[in-house]
Design a protein around this nucleic acid. Structure first.
Length: 803
DNA sequence: AGCACGCCGACT
DNA sequence: GTCGGCGTGCTC
């Protein structure tokens, strides 16, 4: 009998290896590497992934696989190997690596149930258990706990009257619809019609229908189209003329939408020059990484589309990654418009079932292109021809939970496996990518000008300290106010952008400035409008907003939204005639409201669009001629070495929203630190200069791209333990790594306490450290093995945020 | 992660 | 003497 190596669904150090199982003869054709299986593991049944089929095992008494969960493997050979790569590079468990590659719907659900043994009767049981097992009922373990009857159950289990069953269930069912199709040929149907009596009018009608359309039809549709009842169909089914069948259908989120088909647009000279090396590498089937550096509005998307066109014509597939927030209908339209049904879309707005169905389209090879957010990088294609990452610099490509992967790294790894190219596109490339392009590791392609040579908007930086000195205490500079007024008179549109740290709101006392903090974590609570509650994002603590400030008893305690509410109020005072649409977490909470608000703005139902980060992306409306950034520097002073880079990218991004069409655009940036180079250079839209300046800073402070980083976070309930243990780790790492490597710590984490656990960290900066992964693994092994110390150690290789 | 096995304190 | 606390170690 064949043997399968299985990775079991238990994310723990001790089980992070394969377990061997016998493959029952009846499943031997189906069970292959990549198939999910149900296996007995200890006393229970759980899910596992087959990684290998072999004929021998080092173990003697192998158990057998209970059953496969798939008819086709869900992971192909390449993805199984990619799992190994992920495990190695992010130091995660194998099972976590496989799970992250699949839609959540494929994660198993476990149920523990108590059933009466065959041959035993309800009356044999202890009397208190009688009500729970009447009429063959089963009892779930949760219910057993609730009713406090576990000891009684245990006793009867030992007596052999009850049995414990461990069930592994699918999370989502495939959606099925009833279809009807003819069993006979058209000619035979005609003969049947002739045989029928005059009374069988409806049946004749149905058969006539099938003579004309000899195809399966959804039962519901047939009934309503011919306005007949189910009994008519039923009698034809009984006569074996028709047959009813269940057919799998997809939950298609874009089902009732039509996409205007587009044709490839003629390319500008610059675009031609940029696309030609990409097409060349597609043709040759070479692995290369391109950095497509093109200012906003320079036509990057058309380059993506035409590259993909070539890939499809070659019979290959394409993955396009887009940041979640810019995965707007506008973006989807462009791809669906060009490639129609060959496109699958994966983003967080879809339900688990919809995501699963989109995934299945890819898995079955029914689509050739997937457009999606970060996790779409794992799309189960078998013949990838290109991977495109738009807005390559976006931080959302880094996953902040285990496995902490960066989609860019995964993309390059997958592309290497398929010998295909990666295109990284950005108007403000990450320093890492641009540095690699400079070093010729990546192939740099530039689109220096906007389409049709549209001028970049003129940007003016306003020093808000100056405004204050001259007596203007409002949040609008006089200049911005003037310009806004002007736009309203000219019936043009403006976008106001509030650059707030974080996307959330907090609760603050307006008298003493006291901010409501989580009692368990050193972080402010987030205000949720629903129920007027404050919640902690890290530990889940909840409480109502107090009526009075706990510090000074003032009643002026109120929530500070993203600040947009306040801006809207003030706008109402100074420009009462302006129609404003506000977009923030509060107004876009519900599904689809994001889209709706943008549509209203596009239709000219408002003069001003006011919002946070989320409006910085993808907005491309012809009538926007003014962009105002209310506070450019709120992000600048965060304790993060990337804060300058982020500020520059964001300001440049927002500025690009203005004047993308015929009307020229203007940008006003208000700031308290106009002399800071990231603000100043965003003003002149000078990426190259910014790059040089920032590279010098990174070099002196030994940050990426000059050094790689790894971050170890240690947490414990006692502050002292956390510090001490971090100290130990620091010492150990020092002893293992080279002298050129910088090891910082122990230092308190930027969030020093989460869920009553103190957090200390150690930051490693290194250039070349072949021993690093091994050293980090040793540390993890140590702490994952012993769970009693109460210490938790987590490691982020190449962290994005140092938290 | 679960779960069983096992070795010590407070109860019928 | 037994029930049950959770410490320890295993799951092919």
């Amino acid at each position: 009998m064949k043997i399968a190596s299985v990775i079991v669904d238990v994310p723990a150090k001790q089980t992070d290896k394969t377990f061997d199982y016998l493959i029952p003869e009846q499943w031997s054709d189906i069970i292959q590497p990549g198939t999910r299986v149900v296996i007995p593991f200890g006393p229970r049944n759980i899910q596992g992934f087959v990684t290998e089929i072999k004929s021998e095992s080092d173990f003697n008494n192998l158990k057998a696989i209970i059953e496969p969960m798939d008819l086709e493997p869900v992971l192909n050979h390449e993805l199984l190997n990619l799992g190994d790569w992920l495990t190695e590079h992010t130091l995660c468990f194998k099972i976590s690596a496989y799970q992250v590659m699949l839609p959540a719907a494929l994660k198993a659900k476990y149920e523990k149930k108590i059933k009466i043994s065959s041959g035993a009767a309800v009356n044999d049981l202890a009397p208190i258990l009688h009500p729970f097992f009447q009429k063959g009922r089963t009892l779930s373990w949760d219910e057993a706990l609730q009713f406090g009857i576990v000891p009684a159950l245990k006793k009867e289990t030992e007596n052999g009257l009850l049995e414990v069953h461990y069930e592994v269930k699918e999370r989502i069912k495939k959606k099925k619809l009833k279809f009807v199709r003819p069993l006979l040929s058209a000619a035979e149907l005609t003969a049947e019609i002739a045989k029928m009596t005059g009374r069988q009018v409806k049946q004749k009608e149905v058969l006539t229908y099938f003579v004309l359309y000899h195809e399966p039809v959804e039962l519901k549709k047939l009934l309503s189209d011919l306005s007949i009842s189910a009994s008519t169909v039923k009698s034809l089914v009984e006569k074996k003329i028709l047959i009813e069948e269940d057919m799998e259908v997809y939950r298609d989120p874009y089902l009732n939408r039509t996409f205007e088909r587009t044709k490839p647009l003629p390319l500008s000279e610059a675009q031609k020059a940029a696309i030609s090396p990409i097409l060349h590498s597609i043709e040759k089937g070479e692995h290369e990484v391109f950095l497509l550096y093109g200012v906003t509005g320079s036509g990057k998307t058309e380059i993506y589309l035409q590259s993909i066109q070539n890939v499809i014509e070659k019979g290959q597939e394409a993955i396009v990654l887009v940041p979640e927030i810019s995965l707007t209908p506008q973006m989807v339209n462009r791809f669906k418009g060009r490639f129609g049904d060959l496109v699958a879309v994966l983003h967080s707005g879809l339900s688990a079932g919809e995501k699963y169905d989109e995934w299945r389209k890819i898995h079955r090879g029914e689509v050739k292109v997937v457009v999606g957010a970060r996790s779409a990088i794992f799309a189960p294609f078998e013949n990838l021809g290109i991977i495109i990452i738009d807005e390559e610099h976006e931080t959302s490509y880094k996953q902040e939970e285990m496995p902490r992967y960066h989609a860019r790294d995964v993309a390059i790894e997958r592309a290497r496996n398929y010998n295909c190219s990666v295109v990284l596109g950005s108007a403000t490339p990450s320093l890492e990518s641009f540095a690699r392009a400079q070093k010729k590791v990546y192939h740099l392609l530039t689109l220096p000008t906007r389409m049709n040579n549209q001028a970049l908007p003129s940007v003016e930086i306003i020093d808000m300290r100056e405004e204050l000195r001259e007596g203007n205490r409002s949040m609008f500079s006089r200049k911005l106010f003037e310009k806004l007024k002007e736009r309203i008179e000219r019936q043009e549109q403006s976008v106001l952008f509030l650059n707030k740290r974080g996307h959330s709101s907090f609760v603050m006392c307006r008298d003493c400035g006291y901010v409501m903090n989580c009692p368990n974590c050193d972080i402010s609570l987030t205000y949720h409008r629903a129920g007027g509650q404050m919640k902690c994002h890290y530990c889940g603590y909840e409480s109502l907003v107090p009526k009075r400030c706990p510090e000074c008893s003032s009643e002026y305690i109120r929530y500070f939204g993203t600040g947009t509410q306040k801006v809207e109020d003030e706008l109402g005072k100074i420009l009462p005639e302006a129609r404003v649409i506000r977009m923030d977490v509060d107004t876009t909470g519900r599904k689809g409201s994001h889209e709706r608000l943008l549509k209203e703005f596009q239709e000219g139902k408002a003069d001003i669009l006011l919002g946070t980060q989320m409006i910085a992306k993808g907005l491309d409306f012809p009538n926007i001629t003014l962009v105002g950034v209310l506070s450019a520097d709120t992000m600048l002073h965060l304790p993060d070495f990337r804060s300058s880079e982020k500020t520059f990218q964001l300001l440049t991004q927002v500025s690009g929203r203005a004047g993308r069409h015929e009307l020229p655009g203007e940008v006003i940036i208000q700031t308290y630190s106009p002399e800071h180079y990231s603000v100043e250079l965003a003003g002149t839209q000078d990426y190259d200069l910014f790059y040089n300046r920032e590279m010098m800073v990174r070099k002196t402070h030994r940050y990426p791209p000059f050094y790689y980083l790894s971050l170890i976070t240690v947490s414990h309930e006692e502050l002292l333990k956390a510090v001490k243990e971090t100290e130990k780790i620091v010492a150990f790492i020092r002893s293992q790594l080279s002298n050129e490597t910088v090891i910082l710590g122990p230092s308190a984490s930027p969030i020093p306490r989460i869920n009553n656990r103190y957090r200390y960290q150690c930051l490693i900066k290194y250039k070349r450290e072949p021993n690093l992964i091994r050293t980090l693994k040793t540390i993890l092994d140590q702490y994952q093995k012993d769970t009693k110390s109460g210490l938790q150690v987590s490691i982020d290789v190449n962290p994005f945020i140092l938290m």
